[in-house]
Design a protein around this nucleic acid. Structure first.
Ligand code: MN
Ligand code: MN
Ligand code: MN
Ligand code: MN
Lengths: 219, 219
DNA sequence: AATATTTGTTAGATTAGTCTAACTTTTTAT
DNA sequence: ATAAAAAGTTAGACTAATCTAACAAATATT
């Protein structure tokens, strides 16, 4: 197993791969908050144990081995987040930083037990999918709330950004995963939406928020 | 806060202090499985932030600050062990290695929540005391089973060594914390004891085992 | 096509944590 | 009191992870 630092590099590369096709060194260095030379020398080292494929000036690539290792770290992260919320009673906005540390704990038994106590969950508290034990991640294709139309009824399933700020905002509006909302009106001027859900008959959500919420249409 | 490595040094010094008065560099290096020069250079660095007092050729000393930091790491370790056994269903022989990693997690909320879910326990699964939130450790004065006499009834409360091997051995004999035993006979030749407890009317325990078991006399 | 900008690389330095070899001080045994 | 043994220290080297400064290659803009 690589060091904690190297695990964070693999995980970062995995995220970049899963959203923007090519992995650019600059993106990696920004995501990890290190200088480009630092990231550059690290990917060269990661190549030595065949976690990544490195060729000068070419986009970075994860090997199968590197991708699997990364997925298993993500698995540990998301199982931990689920455990902290469902079993230990933390709020969804409190668990990320703890999981960021726990994901590096070397103990299959611990995470297997979490998985079991949680009943083999497939998504984390923010709706992100949990890779299975062999590192396979199946992600569903949700729609952005901002792309929906007036009159539709949708269910919140995930978000593109699970920052504490967004989660705290959603808490304040009583919006949770699974909350179903009716889109009453879309303001053409600023794309803000008026939605109705639970005991909130008329809530305004800005375009900035709607862009980040991933939903599925309820029939 | 110090690094994970430095935390392990502080904890090791804390253990040495709590049992053998003076902290010798050689003992520290053996406990941490590093060379003496490594330990030597580390204690010099620890002095810089006033975790320890270092004077050439003198026994090492923890500062108040260092002692408290160490106690709080031990607290996290033992709360974790308790959590893993009581809440997650692990055996007392499985938890130490996981706790060795979790003790470095930086989250008051996590350990406060464990403490709460456990009902503020005062001892870990091996009977070792848990320092309180301010780093105060109150340790009870138990007797070694090997020092008891024929005819006495004792309760297992702790052990001097909670190695996996001993714990697995005790499992195999159905001996747990709290198990009460009657000392039927002490073999003068090898100091082994014949004890009776639960459904085991006559169990032989070697001196090697008895030396490690800490008990209190039951009236 | 030439130039400017962005992206990536190299070189050289720094800090944390570790080692071995050689040496010194302290402690113990004779 | 001396010599031997144990404990502790110094010096010098190494790896992991990071940085800044300088430079090169690739890409985008005019
Ligand atoms: Mn997270
Ligand atoms: Mn991490
Ligand atoms: Mn332990
Ligand atoms: Mn540890």
């Amino acid at each position: 197993m690589p060091t904690q630092t190297k695990e964070n590099y693999l995980k970062a590369m995995y995220f970049l791969e899963r959203k923007g096709s090519k992995i650019a060194l600059t993106d990696l260095s920004k995501l990890l908050d290190v200088s480009t030379p630092t990231a550059n020398s690290m990917v060269k080292k990661l190549q030595e144990d065949e976690w990544v494929i490195y060729q000068k000036y070419k986009p970075l690539q994860l090997t199968e081995k590197g991708r699997k290792a990364a997925a298993l770290i993500v698995r540990k992260h998301r199982l931990t987040e689920m455990f902290l919320t469902k079993i230990m009673g933390f709020g969804w906005e409190e668990v990320h930083d703890i999981a960021e540390e726990m994901e590096h704990i070397n103990s299959d038994a611990l995470f297997d037990r979490m998985d079991e106590l949680l009943g083999n969950p497939t998504v984390d508290p923010h709706g992100s999918p949990i890779p299975d034990k062999s590192g396979v991640l199946v992600s569903r294709n949700y729609e952005h709330l901002s792309d929906m139309s007036e009159g539709q009824r949708v269910r919140l399933c995930s978000m593109t950004d699970s920052s504490t700020e967004l989660l705290v905002f959603l808490n304040s509006k009583n919006i949770k995963l699974g909350t179903e909302m009716d889109i009453l009106k879309i303001e053409s001027f600023d794309q803000s939406m008026i939605v109705s859900y639970n005991h909130h008959p008329s809530m305004m959500l800005s375009h900035e928020v709607c862009k980040r919420l991933l939903v599925e249409v309820v029939n």
